[in-house]
């Protein structure tokens, strides 16, 4: 009988001691803020397009850390969704309305039609449009994230979303696609 009592008392004491240690550690090693939000935000593509329903990538990251679904980012595509799933420890869900390889696009303003209303400048979340009232506007292609937010506000509908061209610098070296040469490469029709 005494052995049982001893065992119980000892175990209880042990539990108390470890509990104190854990509590102390929880206080001392507490991490300020929620680092997961920064990690989530670093995974998102930073187009600040709002297609997820949040005004920017950071608000969406914060929402995800509070349990928001991870499949709401079309520009990030499936790759980003899987990374988010991994970070949050949830199952990956397919991103609605996104193709296999989302084509990167940039906005291009047809300058002859621009009336200088600055609506697109106000709409652009990353200030990638250069222009002023009554002056022609133009998109700085290097800064454009292809978020599509400028197309709607334009009253003369002069903005096109143009896919980014592959050139020698960003070619993906996948030789498989070259076997059937697309027509534009073969210049045999040209006179010289």
């Amino acid at each position: 009988m005494t052995t049982i009592i001893t065992a119980v008392v000892l175990l209880t004491l042990l539990a108390l001691v470890f509990g104190v240690i854990l509590g102390f550690a929880a206080q001392k090693f507490k991490v300020e803020g929620n680092p997961i939000v920064d990690q989530l935000e670093a995974t998102l593509p930073q187009t600040q397009c709002g297609q997820c329903g949040y005004p920017g990538c950071r608000p969406y990251a914060e929402a995800i850390s509070n349990g928001e679904k991870i499949n709401r980012c079309p520009p990030g595509g499936t790759a980003t969704m899987e990374k988010l799933a991994e970070l949050m420890g949830v199952d990956p869900e397919p991103v609605a309305a996104v193709e296999e390889e989302p084509v990167k696009k940039v906005a291009v303003i047809r300058e002859e039609e621009c009336i200088g209303c600055t609506k697109c400048i106000q709409a652009c979340p990353v200030d990638a449009i250069l222009g002023s009232g009554k002056m022609m506007h133009t998109v700085i292609a290097a800064d454009c994230t292809g978020c599509d937010l400028c197309v709607e506000p334009c009253p003369v509908d002069c903005i096109d979303m143009v896919p980014v061209q592959t050139d020698l610098r960003n070619w993906d070296w996948k030789l498989k696609g070259l076997e059937t040469i697309p027509v534009k490469f073969v210049e045999e029709e040209k006179s010289c």
């Binding site: 187009t47 920017g56 990538c57 979340p125 990353v126 200030d127 990638a128 800064d143």
Partner: peptide, 12 residues
């Protein structure tokens, strides 16, 4: 690019 986009967004 996304770093830059984020910075510009925050600046805006």
């Amino acid at each position: 690019k996304s770093e830059r986009a984020k910075q510009k967004f925050e600046a805006k």
